[in-house]
Design a protein around this nucleic acid. Sequence first.
DNA 1: TGAAATGTTGGGGCG
DNA 2: ACGCCCCAACATTTC
Length: 487
Amino acid sequence: MIKRIVMNPRRDATGADISIVWFRQDLRLADNPALNAASERGIVIPAFIWSPDSEGDWPPGGASKWWLHHSLEELSKRLEKLGAKLILRGGNPLDELKSLVRETGAKAVFWNRRYEPFAIEQEKDVAKYFQGAGIESESFNSHLLFEPWEIENKSGKPFRVFTPFWKTCLAAAQRIQKPVPQPAKIVSPKEWPPSLSLSDLKLSPQRDWANGFARVWEPGEAGAGKNLKRFLRDSISGYEDSRNRPDQMGTSRLSPHLHFGEISPRQIWDAARQHKSASAKKFLAEIGWREFSHHLLFHFPETPTRPLSAQFEKFAWQKNAAWLKAWRRGRTGYPIVDAGMRELWATGWMHNRVRMVAASFLVKDLLQPWQEGARWFWDTLVDADLANNTLGWQWVAGCGADAAPFFRIFNPVLQGEKFDPDADYTRSWIPEIAALPDKWIHQPWNAPKDVLSKAGVELGRNYPEPVVSHAIAREVALERYARIKDS
DNA sequence: TGAAATGTTGGGGCG
DNA sequence: ACGCCCCAACATTTC
């Protein structure tokens, strides 16, 4: 194909080609193929466009915005060290890219692909426009190990079950590309186009509720690297067991870094596969679940709001605003559930084991639609990711791909006793019952009166009575499930 | 990446 | 010594 030459009077005086790198969920310099493509070509204009109105029904929530603010700050600093600058814009992505091309005389636009339905449409529009305008545009995969259309079962359909999906991925593992190093230098234009300042994007919370976040998290590429290093050094060998322990630092805590692309799955794959243990395989399988969720969202774009299993459309939920509120606030009266919900609120994250317990409780004990839970997580998680969040909630509700059977109902008392045996986790998030002995801390309503009063616990006053009885709620849930089962 | 109900087994107390 | 019962421990089935 012959490239059309576009004369532009404002071309950079050096004559070198100018390319825009449209940063999105790839806020890193290493293993960033779009950035590398641009820097190999010549002058690079790195740009981020804040466009919450172009995110379908899923504009980033408060916690995500907090993270994004700090991640952009870090990316800016890293680019500045290379003599470059991150151009910030707000508005419709295509309009802003058009302006940037016009202002800079850029000849090419590069980006790394996303897989949410609205993001795919956005990219199609951008590619189509620039093709028509004679500007080169190219997108790359850096967000997944494989493209969703590359992995299929023998009849050419997407997998709906994780194990065969992941087996197929592992069999194709030699196709996973090695991470590419970050460009040694980035050539800058003589003059930078206008940029908003970070504070103009208004990503930081008005009220200062995110203090707890900063104590736990270090957004950005450096923080991602530290977490990976710490995990590989301290935790991967015991991961099989410790991953289920919210009272321990047993997980990688890479989820928000992965969501914002501060680290790529290829980098994680490359680093972790050196470890040959069963635990390392388990960890890589978690990267596999992330991969699976993205492939599913690509193939089934309705699933953020609609159950993959159609019969669940008829499930008789029992909407109850008070119960939903109690769950959100961490006031259900079930300590392990409340601890998780408070950890989420305070830090923007919840341990995965506790996510399963808390989610199961909302869906199966409180009979609230899983979409309500997904929406709350979306607003409060720093790692809120449409693919992962959707799969997680549909898995818990039993209505998605490779879902837990509906009748698999977590008992919050047993889960607490099993996975937070010393109750360190529960006590740290629910100080009002911290003085209860281990025997009763996961079920304070069963504690003898004198034990409660000795611990300074007055149920219904400083800690709630259970919002529902688990034993009864379980029966009700099973009965409602039976009603839709064979339809 | 469950839990509860139900079934089975085997040791020990006891007549 | 033997059979019976109880029940804990474990296994299987069911939801």
